[in-house]
């Protein structure tokens, strides 16, 4: 039996993630590019579905949440890796990125990590422990 309170917390987190990804990609990025737009749209839709399921206590919520978390985690790891490798490449081409550059890149990474890595990991663990009870 899922804890109602935990379901509400994770459902809200899924909703927040959907809003952030949707706004960040479709509102924040200046151009449309399918390799970014399609995964972002899929993730936004899945996070919204997971949020709806968990907040309403639907029977299918856990299954959809697992898929959403798996996709979010996969994309999150990919994004962080790509960002890190890009920084390394730029560092190779331009030399030290300086304090300003380091702060900006750390902030970008910090924006992705909580929602696309930490949250999916915690939620997957919660969903798994919930399945065992």
């Amino acid at each position: 039996m899922r804890s109602r309170r935990a379901s509400l917390v994770f459902g809200s987190a899924n909703l927040l993630t959907a809003v952030l990804v949707g706004l960040g990609v479709f509102g924040g990025l200046p151009a449309r590019w399918a390799p970014v737009d399609v995964p972002a749209a899929a993730l936004t839709a899945l996070e919204l579905a997971a949020a709806a399921g968990l907040l309403s206590g639907a029977a299918w919520a856990a299954r959809v949440s697992r898929v959403a978390c798996a996709l979010a985690l996969a994309l999150g790891l990919l994004v962080v890796s790509v960002l890190a490798v890009t920084v390394s490449w730029l560092g190779g081409v331009y030399g030290p990125v300086g304090r300003g550059g380091a702060i900006i890149l750390a902030l970008v990474a910090a924006l992705a990590l909580p929602y696309l890595v930490a949250l999916p990991v915690v939620q997957l663990l919660w969903l798994r422990s919930d399945r065992g009870t």
């Binding site: 790891l77 962080v80 890796s81 890190a84 490798v85 920084v87 390394s88 490449w89 560092g91 190779g92 081409v93 030399g95």
Partner: peptide, 18 residues
Amino acid sequence: AWATATIVTCVIVRRVFA
């Protein structure tokens, strides 16, 4: 494994392009 692979890749990429 992901963290290790990412760190190693970063080090290699930086060395190759520097």
